[in-house]
Design a protein around this nucleic acid. Structure first.
Lengths: 203, 203, 203, 203
DNA sequence: TGCTAACCGAGACGGTACGTCCAGTCTTAGT
DNA sequence: ACTAAGACTGGACGTACCGTCTCGGTTAGCA
């Protein structure tokens, strides 16, 4: 549940109440005051918790943020849900990509995700945990949908599915990160269409 | 030259010596100690400059970093250089994408670029300046190469060149940012090939 | 006119306008913001003067303050006026001492005088200038009044007049400085009476 | 023990070690570098203490200095000692006044006392604390000696003892403060003799 | 009357210290 | 043993001034 490694305190004594309060406070605070003003002291105060309780269980601010996302992801429990599979690959991808755009655009998630991304940028261990625990499961669902298309003969068997997922979601994440252009459902559609057909193909 | 806006001090009295010392110190320091330990105080000390001289001319640490990159970019003077155009689009794109991968992989630029990216993430104004001043010119070169391919009939006229560029470089930037997979020349090649042909096409 | 010593700039070129503006600004400012917040920059800004004009003509903040008092003292032109001499020494001393108390109590002079006193405390050269230029003339008037009393046989010839003046005004200055007790006209009267008669005498 | 007022941090958790280190450092530093160069940062550095520990417990630099004097005064433990009482008032007063002169002349105490005096000058609350905690006990001893003289019939019962003490020590403090004349044992003797006899009396 | 040196305002510069915030460690008292 | 609380050392923040240093623009005095 926690990113902490190495010699830890006895986890059976851990207060679940404090844990949830900390993660909730962290997520809310980062949304309210932004990444720059997010502090351990602030989280502890908001959660009604001693600072040491945070330092005891998490190695860094980023790890707290990470666990906060993890708690949310588990709360939604969509980890087991599959992506839509109507048989029409392009439509299904559009649906999912538009959902991604909607989430990235949601002001409640924007700041927290930027904050987490910042920590991932500078902490390879955290980034690995992210890849495995948060991004991984979602990416597997995406791969699974593409695999289904391969089975249906809509995609070549030799296609590297990891690469394919990255080609679809990479441009979207890029626009979100650097705000290099409008991040709209239409953009999602265009990415899907062009990715499937290739740059060379006439639409 | 500077990101500063609003009522500024008289720029004609500005010390060019201090300006260069600050930008150089900032770039070097972030490479040495990393983003987390980069401080205005540290930059000022390393540059042999009063803190106020930094606060007078730059609104944030990110703006200093941005100008440092700008100084470097202008020093390289590749702003006017065109991308290779041998007539073979795929080969040319591979060359350029491999160069991008090489730069992102270069340890001298990795940390500074991560630091700048962090600031861009949380500062829309800075991100806009980045898009216009640093990313923009390079992106125009890329668009120009694709335009040339359009003229040669290798790419359809209706292709959105912005989208095309993002589909090529987005996945690479993504892997770099989150270290979600190995960032190799081969990956660059694969992205180019798949982007051009489309996910559906048999290689 | 100035406390400045050593190699000075050519005083014939000196701007009398600036000089007066600086001294006025200094006196007013210290009364408004207090000693702790009095700064050369503030004086220069208030006087509409470059900082260098202050540094050129005065060696320290205290010297500016000193000259400000000097300007005031000369403006009042009571340097030549004699103290009252009605023949009744005690009454005359009461009058003068009450005037001293009134001045020290005047809110317009209280802060400026405290500020100047602070500087005198830590700058022997300035204290010497004060003793000679500001306190000296006034003390001579006081001595003169006592001398007149000696001539009239009201005070013994052997009396050390400096000591006498200090015994009269010292306690008053003390109460003012440390606010160690109420500084009232009645106190002035009591000091005069007791000093003349001595502690041992029955009033 | 401290001048701090208003809502304070929990004093039971206070580090006595840090407190003593701060007060000692403050006293030593002011003696070494003088009032003008005395800084909170310097005190903290010398004491091996975080700046916040000073700001947490004292409201101003002057309050630190005050407590430093308080610590010294308690260390000397002469608060309970009585002044000499040989029956010869003038001689006893000379002894005590000469001691005062010696202390004010002692280079180890001169700068620190000037610094404290400066703060008292501009901080009425601190001055009140000084009057009550430091000057008060000593003044009571002086009054007590004079009271004894009253009992012995050497001083009139109607004599205001506060005034008497101020008339004796005021001139001395005055000379010390403004260096308006030589501060010698002889001066102390002259003040005592003249104060007792009065200005009018023939010595 | 025109030249030139000194003064003027303005304000940028390298610095020091301010008083605040927070990091991460440690101690105390309570459950 | 873990917790809430919070004092501790320490480092950086962003601001205010220090005293020095140009910079153009007057201004006075000599040529």
């Amino acid at each position: 549940m926690t990113t902490q490694s190495g010699k830890s305190p006895n986890p059976t004594r851990r207060s679940e109440t404090s844990r949830r309060a900390i993660l909730t406070a962290a997520f809310e605070l980062v949304g309210e005051v932004g990444y720059a003003r997010l502090s351990i002291e602030g989280i502890a105060a908001r959660a009604g918790v001693g600072k040491q309780t945070i330092y005891r269980w998490w190695p860094s601010k980023g790890a707290v943020l990470f666990d906060a996302f993890l708690m949310l992801a588990e709360g939604r429990d969509d980890g087991s849900a599959a992506l839509p599979d109507t048989g029409d690959l392009e439509t299904d991808l559009r649906t999912v990509m538009r959902a991604t755009v909607a989430e990235l655009t949601d002001p409640r998630y924007d700041e927290p995700m930027r904050a987490l991304t910042t920590e991932l940028l500078h902490d390879p261990a955290l980034a690995a945990a992210y890849t495995e625990r948060l991004d991984g499961p979602m990416k597997e669902l995406k791969r699974e949908r593409l695999r289904s298309a391969q089975r249906a003969g809509q995609l070549p068997d030799e296609l590297d599915l990891d690469l394919a997922v990255e080609m679809l979601w990479g441009p979207v994440r890029d626009r979100w990160l650097l705000r290099s252009g409008p991040l709209t459902p239409e953009y999602a559609d265009a990415v899907v269409r062009t990715a499937l057909g290739g740059l060379c193909s006439r639409p």
